[in-house]
Design a protein around this nucleic acid. Structure first.
Lengths: 143, 143
DNA sequence: TAAAGATACTTGATATAAGCAAGTAAATTT
DNA sequence: AAATTTACTTGCTTATATCAAGTATCTTTA
């Protein structure tokens, strides 16, 4: 297989997948959260009590933008922040009770959405699919 | 493999890949074209003389948005339009000479960008990667 | 075949997502 | 203790996308 074919395969995938992700994004429209906000909540769940800087090590958003999103999520009682004791520049961020529930809802929505996409496949096909995704993850991101 | 694991694999991939595509998008910043514009030019190249409606069968953009993008690309001499003879509501759209060149540039940029992402892999690994992408394409989009 | 409905495209107004730059305050380095 | 860096915030702007209403033409149907 030539390099050009390899690149074409990936680019073809990208063109299609970008649109899939666009659709996924639209499925978030009714929830009141953007995909980025949903990512942030996911990360806060994963990391537990964390900071804007830690979140941004994953997402690499504009700092100001992230700051505003966090501010909004706090004002909607999804997140809380408290001043860190060891470093007074830092705010420790965590999910509120409501935030935990909301994050769970978004998590379920996302899983349902993926379930829908693969629902037309047989179980062996779904397994092949997962295997392929895992393979790519391993190769590209070393996991 | 359980369904929940399959879904988790896909969601994990999505979280990572969304960011990759975000980076890809940024690589278009200097070009003066957005990823969407670049897609449009790609489709016009593929389809040859085409129409807004045909383009939108692929991209599903808001019609008004698409109309404006086309307008802009025409005013920048990338696209031309001519009124269709069989249907006076329709405009046939095609790439200008300049448009062909610009599209080619974007195409090259996109290929280079992908080449960069896979450059740390050996050829067999790159082949495995392409194979996995193709597999997913086949399963999800039937190609 | 004339009216009703559908299709192709456009335009004005607006929303959403994201980024830049300048700034404050606290920590770290020199 | 001054200079630099880090963590976060805020004002302003741009990029991307959507909604709704409208024009012109084509197609259906009564």
């Amino acid at each position: 297989m030539k390099e050009i074919e390899i690149i074409h395969s990936i680019r073809k995938f990208n063109r299609n997948y970008v649109r899939s992700i666009g659709l996924l994004e639209k499925s978030f429209l009714n929830t009141g959260y953007s995909l980025t906000e949903s990512h942030i909540l996911y990360i806060v769940k994963e990391q537990g009590k964390t900071t804007a800087t830690e979140i941004n090590k994953v997402l690499n958003l504009d700092e100001g933008y992230l700051s505003r999103i966090i501010k909004k999520l706090i004002s909607n009682s999804i997140l809380t922040k408290e001043k860190s004791k060891d470093d007074k520049r830092v705010f420790k961020i965590s999910l509120t009770e409501k935030g935990i529930k909301e994050q769970q809802k978004l998590d379920d929505l996302s899983s349902d959405s993926v379930a829908g996409i693969i629902s037309h496949l047989s179980l062996p096909e779904q397994e092949e699919l997962a295997h392929s995704f895992n393979k790519i993850m391993g190769l590209l991101y070393g996991e």
